[in-house]
Design a protein around this nucleic acid. Sequence first.
DNA 1: CATAGCATCGAACGGATGTTCCAGTCAATG
DNA 2: CATTGACTGGAACATCCGTTCGATGCTATG
Lengths: 217, 217
Amino acid sequence: MKPLTGRQQSILDYIARFMDDNDYPPTIRDIQAELTISSTSVVDYNLKVIEERGYIRRNRNISRGIELVQRDRSRRGSSMLSIPIVGQIAAGLPIPVPGDLESMGTGEDADVLEVGPELIGGNPAGVFALRVRGHSMVDALINDGDIVVLRRQETAQNGETVAVWLREERETTLKKFFLEGENVRLQPANVTMEPIYTRADNVEIQGKLVSVHRSIS
Amino acid sequence: MKPLTGRQQSILDYIARFMDDNDYPPTIRDIQAELTISSTSVVDYNLKVIEERGYIRRNRNISRGIELVQRDRSRRGSSMLSIPIVGQIAAGLPIPVPGDLESMGTGEDADVLEVGPELIGGNPAGVFALRVRGHSMVDALINDGDIVVLRRQETAQNGETVAVWLREERETTLKKFFLEGENVRLQPANVTMEPIYTRADNVEIQGKLVSVHRSIS
DNA sequence: CATAGCATCGAACGGATGTTCCAGTCAATG
DNA sequence: CATTGACTGGAACATCCGTTCGATGCTATG
């Protein structure tokens, strides 16, 4: 993107400020008044330049027809993910099955975790969050009160960290998954701790761990 | 909030749809054309009603001067925080001092962590993020590659988790802080591990731990 | 100096847009 | 039936606002 002159940068800055305040773009005369430019044609001229440089998009013959292309990306919820916190995860409890994520996901009053997409990395579909109860997952460096984000899936590649339900033990755990013949090795994230070995048909994969979030009260 | 008639609800819906598509509000005549209403005065009349009901705000004599009050809350990046990742934190390294957070904070290319405000809880001023290097903080349930969010402060209340620089040992650590007379007890978050005791003038508080984020590759 | 390109300026034009006034329609009510 | 209130129509009016045009500097460039 080509650089802008000082005046053009001022105009662009003002447009951004104006839209933050007012929810709608400024008119050419708004810009003219703010920057004490003597003529609307000067503003129009510079807006054309800014548009050619790619910073804004203009809708001809439409009042306030200025859109910031820059902002569409970083701005707003468009790049913001609201992940529903559908329940709790604890050692002795099976992972709750989120009914239909779509309908409850963006509900106003529902408990949601808002994060940027860089922490999810990939398609946000099928992703949900659970609040951790108890200290049973400290071996995975996960504390009581943490929020874990999982992607629902029933199989796993070797090395992926997954939430599994152990049928015999009747408990949930969060470990790295390795299929070794008939058996499964479940390795804690904390390298100083020992893995669990069990039969493959004893583990029921609930989802893949996507991210962990801890807010200090 | 009082209910709306069908036509008024249609108008409100269309305004919301229009603003999603265009980044600016519709004109009265846009609404008129979309809903095939025969007169602009009908739209104006209904907009006045909708405004009285509290669903929108209108700016008189301003083109496209319609704002959705509903959206201001849940809307977009307004409630989204971009926290700059200003460096790394490791056992043997002092915490980098962020120069001026404001100027570099929202830079386009700067590495930023985007999270919702519920994970920060409080004023986002003076908050910055660091990427964790090494496994020296597993006792605080923090792994290599995690991102920690800190609020810059040089003092701490007992019980707060803080990032401290130990002058003698020349290393950084992240522990719960307890001032006990002349000495300081630094307690790991992991309850199974032993605390560190040291003189108060050996600890240099760098900031208070606000949150921890881990993204599984 | 002549020329060209860039940025600015002032003014006017014309379409876009909010506002207002008056006349209706329709259902509910007495 | 008359009245009232909520709502819709049609048209005109007054700005608001984007666009265009001619003119003026200003800075290279040759």
